[in-house]
Amino acid sequence: MHEMSLAENVLQMIEEAAQAQHFSRVHTVWLEIGQLACVEPQSLRFYFDIVTQDSIARNAKLEIIDKAGQGWCNACRHLTRISSRHDACENCGSYGLQITDGDSMRISELEVE
């Protein structure tokens, strides 16, 4: 049910943008979702369709852009790609990387009219 409240947040932000920037229809929503973010994209799609039913984003296309995870290794001082928080550094095998990218979820763009 967690994705339901995230979908509600997305709609609320769209409606705020609609007031500030004067549009009345949303055709496409681009969401950028980090691989390490705590969200299930399939489930978010499902709830997005439900919560936008009677809104300006009704039938809007939801485009989800995957963002790869990235961490900083303090041991070898390299940036390394990771697909989960417990991955080891690709370069030297150390654990305990500092996450530098891919842990957030954001609305990046809207196609509106």
């Binding site: 932000m13 943008a17 954001r106 609305i107 990046s108």
Partner: peptide, 25 residues
């Protein structure tokens, strides 16, 4: 950023938002 139709009333347009979904929380 770009308009998919000729500029004018009700033209589709792309808005850059760049806001985290958990901003309100």
């Amino acid at each position: 950023l770009s308009a998919t139709h000729a500029p004018g009333m009700n033209a589709k347009r792309i808005l850059r938002i760049e806001r985290d979904i958990l901003t309100q929380n």
